[in-house]
Design a protein around this nucleic acid. Structure first.
Lengths: 207, 207
DNA sequence: TATTTAGTCAACGGCACGTCGATACACATC
DNA sequence: GATGTGTATCGACGTGCCGTTGACTAAATA
């Protein structure tokens, strides 16, 4: 809409480096504040003040608060994409990986969960991250099917989608304490058990 | 906080009837608007105008927009609670029931999902509704365990929590088109399959 | 030196919010 | 009929945050 730049940019993500420390300061401030309050209790002025700049100057770096969070999420996305593609890996490794991603970036995740309802783009990006996991789990299930270890009857991708969303919700509620929730300590084991049953029909990962 | 009434009220939920048509008009307007736009694109003025009153008058009936949505959700909650408690029912019936609730009240559900991040009380009430379902599924699993049809090894309630949240997310993403999602037509079958495997270890509901 | 370009912010206008105070009306009580 | 009490209504106000404009500085570049 307001685009007349020579350098095409897509909403978030700045054009040139240099005053680049400021940008980092804003992101750092956002991360710090998100660890202590909800998105909606953080104003653009808070982010600006935290980065040592005025509110109008904030807009020089980001078009909105949402854009800041999306940039934070972008980092997570790249971290996820950068992970080695281990073909035929055990599904339990996928699960552990998702779990780790969640715990390490919990504040960002919560923020994203809060703006997903308001922001088209947030939902899209979050979906892309989960898509990575779905792809991994799908591949693992297919490999187990060929081995003859997994149950036939449900399309691997469909199964993977259901399992990944289950994990997402269980971890989210467990970390957020949103009832009904599993305990932080049990959550992973329980989900692992359900995954095993859903893929192999038993609690021993087909073994 | 602002309570000095003889009749104790808890935020939402009006004190006396009479100008009660107005209250209904506000709720009806909210439901209508929620079917066409997101919560954040609906202002209090929109609700007031839709109900044929001014904005200040809106506050005579509800303390906030959130309160309106919570009242809408309250209705759903009562509908869910009013359902007959059929002990030992098949889990597939629980599933079908949750599915129905979702589809019928989809706009309200989406609205709730959007404000859950902002409103403590919304999360609580939504949790209570899911808790109803969790209780039902837990009972069904326990009954199947006694019958010897279900797999041992995962606490029934923990399993129920994981399964209900999975269903919640799958239905939500499927209805909202939030990727990665299952198709609207497949969703129920897939989830049913996963539930069967997670409880019985096979695709035939233990039979 | 002149010109551009990155970076900065005071000040403005706007929108939605929540509140206050005045009012109007019904109905009971004196 | 006067007077009160509680319900219902809204105009008008102050506030907070938002996003933009326009003018400014400082540094790079011609």
């Amino acid at each position: 809409m307001t685009s007349g730049d020579s350098v095409p940019r897509r909403g978030r993500r700045r054009r040139r480096p240099s005053g680049d420390d400021r940008e980092r300061a804003i992101l750092a401030t956002a991360e710090r504040l998100l660890a202590e309050r909800a998105v909606h209790d953080i104003s653009i002025d808070d982010l600006a003040k935290g980065a040592g700049i005025s509110r109008p100057t904030f807009y020089f770096y980001f078009p909105s608060k949402e854009a800041v969070i999306l940039t934070l999420l972008d980092r997570v996305a790249e971290e996820v994409r950068r992970r080695p593609a281990r073909a035929g890996e055990r599904v339990s490794e996928d699960l552990a990986e998702i779990h780790t991603t969640f715990r390490v970036h919990a504040p960002v995740m919560f923020a994203v969960a809060q703006i997903v309802g308001e922001s088209e783009e947030a939902g899209k990006l979050w979906g892309e991250i989960l898509e990575e996991f779905v792809a991994g789990v799908t591949a693992a299930i297919e490999s187990e099917l060929e081995r003859g270890a997994a149950l036939e009857g449900i399309a691997p991708r469909s199964l993977a989608i259901a399992l990944v969303w289950m994990l997402e919700r269980v971890l989210h509620t467990s970390l957020a304490g949103q009832q009904p929730a599993l305990g932080l300590d049990d959550a992973l084991d329980i989900v692992l058990g359900v995954w095993s049953r859903a893929i192999y029909g038993n609690d021993t990962f087909g073994g």
